[in-house]
């Protein structure tokens, strides 16, 4: 999988309002008329999304039509039966449920655990803090994808193959998440905490009532990010959840891409792919700003 995980901004950085301004008239700048620019970009976006549009077209065409002739961008004989199949046949619904359970659990736990650790590293003083933090950061170097063999042994030896906890627990150890939350909390001025302490609040109270609400944007970004990553996880669910009932949407969809299904049930296959991706797309469209804010650079201070 060649999708990198980028860094995350700590906190709510306002997008710089003054981006490249319209330059002074003396500047020789190649500028396209807005219409041309829009037209070009629109075409580019359309071409870019062509594969997805084609997928929709295939999902809307009946299976037997496609056995004889491939279908183009426009569906050939509109039908909803492929989508109906998704919910009636096969285990797609079950896979969907599994993905929801695993991803939600991973997201909630990751955010909680990383927020707590981040607060501790940023705001609490204790000896060995730097050393421990360095150890945590060193964990970023561990290639998660490659370490599945010992992890597999650990879960299978304790009889936890094909369980939900096996699917989401390893995901919760997310050093980058701790890094993000630490970065965020370290930018929260100490005055907040001092004020609360003066009022007699203990550290737990401070964390719960003051820090967490402040951290909501960062936590939201981390949550969305973790959600996407966990939903799309392929290798680990493949290894640890071998019973068909415990597949996630991602591994389940992959299991259907065999020689035979390809030849006879393309429409249903495409419909499953679309339905399986739908939650992420919806999430993305709704929370676009949070997700993108979450992955923009935190290193604005050069």
């Amino acid at each position: 999988m060649a999708t990198p995980i980028p860094t995350v901004t700590a906190g709510d950085r306002p997008a710089p309002a003054a981006a490249a301004p319209a330059g002074p008239p003396t500047r020789r700048r190649i500028r396209f008329r807005p219409g041309v620019r829009h037209g070009f970009l629109l075409l580019a976006a359309f071409v870019w999304l062509l594969p997805v549009l084609w997928m929709v077209s295939m999902a809307l065409t009946p299976n037997d039509v496609q056995q004889r002739e491939p279908v183009g961008l426009l569906p050939d004989g509109l039908t909803w039966s492929n989508f109906a199949d998704v919910f009636q046949l096969g285990l797609m619904l079950r896979w969907f449920g599994n993905s929801v359970v695993v991803t939600t659990a991973a997201t909630v736990l990751t955010v909680a655990v990383c927020a707590m650790a981040g607060y501790a590293f940023a705001k609490l003083r204790f000896t060995g803090r730097r050393l421990l933090f360095a150890v945590v950061i060193a964990g970023l170097m561990v290639p998660r994808e490659a370490m599945f063999v010992p992890l597999f042994l650990m879960f299978s030896d304790t009889g936890q193959q094909n369980t939900y906890q096996a699917l989401f627990l390893p995901r919760v150890a997310f050093p980058l998440g701790v890094f993000i939350m630490t970065q965020f909390f370290s930018r929260v001025p100490d005055e907040y905490e001092e004020a609360a302490r003066v009022d007699g609040a203990g550290p737990l109270r401070v964390f719960w009532s003051i820090m967490l609400p402040l951290a909501r944007p960062a936590m939201a970004s981390l949550a969305i990010f973790t959600f996407v990553l966990t939903w799309n996880d392929y290798l680990w669910p493949l290894v640890i959840a071998t019973e068909q009932e415990m597949f996630t949407v991602t591994t389940g969809l992959a299991s259907l891409q065999s020689n035979f299904a390809a030849a006879t049930e393309i429409g249903s296959l495409m419909a499953r792919g679309l339905i399986g991706s739908l939650p992420l797309v919806v999430l993305f469209l709704l929370f676009q700003r949070q997700l993108i804010r979450g992955i923009t650079l935190g290193s604005g201070e050069k």
Partner: peptide, 22 residues
């Protein structure tokens, strides 16, 4: 019926099931 029904992952899955004691 247990598990996926594909040929090329069948033995991988069977091996994993054995390894998990199930």
């Amino acid at each position: 019926r247990l598990g996926g029904a594909e040929w090329n992952t069948y033995y991988d899955t069977l091996n994993a099931a054995y390894a998990g004691g199930n």
